[in-house]
Write a protein that binds this DNA or RNA. Structure first.
Length: 455
DNA sequence: CTGGGGATGGGGCCC
DNA sequence: TGGGCCCCATCCCCA
């Protein structure tokens, strides 16, 4: 007796019940819109709802109502649909918002799929091999006209063989917004040949809002037609969107067409030819480097930032994904880079600065002392120590070389200096800094077992 | 409210 | 390609 499809049928039934508002015992209100769902499904799908519903489980018979204002109704609708179908409609426009909401709702599976989406966008070599040229091509089974890729985290796995590699699958994962591409040097666009403005430099710190490409005018207004000679002398026709202020978008669209055309004509030096062709279209001067090779930039799929190296783009992507793989083992604060957590540790927990925190004067090993305050450490000169009146100066148990005092201990927080004995799980990668006792665990949040599948 | 300084984040680039 | 260094912008706290 084959029951393999039972779980999918069960889910379909639940979804149908939800749509018909049958047995729904949870109401989620977002932006004035009420979503009805089953608490069992919410409980099973979201750590947030698990916690929420656990606390309200005694109120049997009364529908539980939750209101959110941290994400949009559309985003929650996508997530709710995912809960009931296992299918996640991700596009370049919504992936960050969905990932943010999933993070809030503690849905690690969705987060992993979003990361996979972004990751697949990053794999430039893979794109160059097959995906990049297949931008307009639909994945098998993908509906025509669909605006976004549908990721399936499990229930549709049987549509593809289980031994299909991630790379194979990634070949189908093409977001509608081209995740990267070549971008002209903005300082080489002359005012007379382009009414486009340079991409905004992303400089704001701490503002994690993702800026997505946008156009103030309608697509119809933005469509222009260009005709330029092909390499074989024949003219060919392309349509290019020209939204104001989005020259990188223009370039991407040009490149889509150019690369597709060139792919048919020649597989040699495609990028160079595309660059030249684009320069012809846009009137860009000096787009070739000193070695007569085109200057190639990598464009961030989620903002207007471009970098020269793929590695820099990968690093930059962390600020969009919110990944912080490097936790400080002393205070738990997480960082995007190993060097940042190292600097943080040295500054905050190691008191490397030879400056008295009170009088700001330079101190030496002889004229200063290391002071511990909770998990923080800093230095005080002997004079300030005596003025503060810290009578008891306990020797720091973890530093045999320097005397240490405790001004005010955080009783609730136990300083954890025994980094070597820190928890190590199978999914952590350990970086040991020989200059100190710090052991940094690089945590890989991505569940490698989850493979996104187009359905 | 404002200015200063520390902490942090992020880009460029070298190795 | 990743690690690391340097530099700079921004945030945040505090006086």
């Amino acid at each position: 007796m084959d029951l393999s499809s039972h779980h999918s049928r069960l889910l379909q039934q639940l979804d149908e019940q939800r749509r018909r508002d049958l047995f729904c015992d949870c109401h989620i209100v977002i932006e004035g819109q009420t979503f009805r769902a089953h608490r069992n499904v919410l409980f099973a799908s979201s750590g947030y709802f698990k916690m929420l519903l656990s606390q309200s489980c005694g109120e049997v018979g009364q529908p539980t109502t939750a209101t959110f204002d941290v994400f949009s109704a559309d985003t929650f609708k996508a997530i709710l649909d995912f809960m009931y179908s296992g299918k996640l409609p991700i596009s370049g426009q919504n992936v960050i918002e969905i990932m943010s909401a999933a993070s809030y709702l503690q849905m690690t599976e969705v987060i992993s799929v979003c990361k996979m989406f972004i990751k697949s966008s990053l794999d430039i070599n893979e794109k160059d091999r097959d995906g990049f040229f297949g931008i307009s091509e639909k994945a098998p089974g993908q509906q025509s006209g669909s605006d976004c890729s549908l990721y399936n985290t499990g229930w549709a796995m049987d549509r593809y063989s289980s031994n299909q590699s991630e790379e194979d699958i990634a070949g189908y994962l093409e977001p509608t917004y081209n995740p990267y591409g070549f971008c002209p040097r903005t300082d080489e666009i002359t005012p007379q040949n382009s009414n486009l403005t340079a991409p905004n430099k992303i400089s704001e710190r701490h503002n994690r809002t993702t800026r997505m490409p946008s156009s103030n005018s309608s697509p119809e207004e933005n469509v222009k037609e260009s005709r330029f000679p092909g390499t074989d002398g024949s003219g060919y026709h392309i349509e290019v969107e020209l939204p104001q202020g989005e020259n990188s978008e223009v370039f991407l669209n040009c490149h889509k067409v150019i690369r597709q055309r060139h792919r048919r004509r020649s597989s040699i030096n495609i990028a160079t030819k595309a660059e030249e062709a684009y320069a012809k279209i846009m009137g860009i001067k000096g787009s070739l480097g000193e070695d007569n090779l085109p200057i190639v930039h990598f464009k961030c799929p989620f903002c207007t930032h471009t970098v020269k190296r793929k590695a820099d783009l990968k690093r930059h992507l962390l600020c969009h994904t919110g990944e912080r793989p490097y936790p400080c083992q002393a205070c738990g604060k997480r960082f995007t880079r190993l060097e940042h957590v190292r600097n943080h540790y040295r500054t905050i927990h190691e008191a490397v600065k030879p400056v008295c925190r009170w009088c700001k004067r330079h101190v030496t090993e002889e004229s200063g002392q290391v002071v511990q305050e909770g998990t923080r450490r800093f230095r005080l000169c002997i004079k300030c120590v005596s003025e503060i009146g810290a009578g008891n100066v306990p020797k720091d148990a973890y530093d045999d070389d320097e005397p240490t005092i405790v001004l005010s201990g955080d009783e609730d927080k136990e300083p954890s200096w025994n980094f070597q004995n820190g928890l190590q799980t199978s999914d952590t990668e350990i970086h040991e800094d020989v200059s100190s006792d710090l052991v940094i665990h690089k945590v890989d949040d991505i569940d490698e077992d989850i493979k996104p599948i187009i359905c």
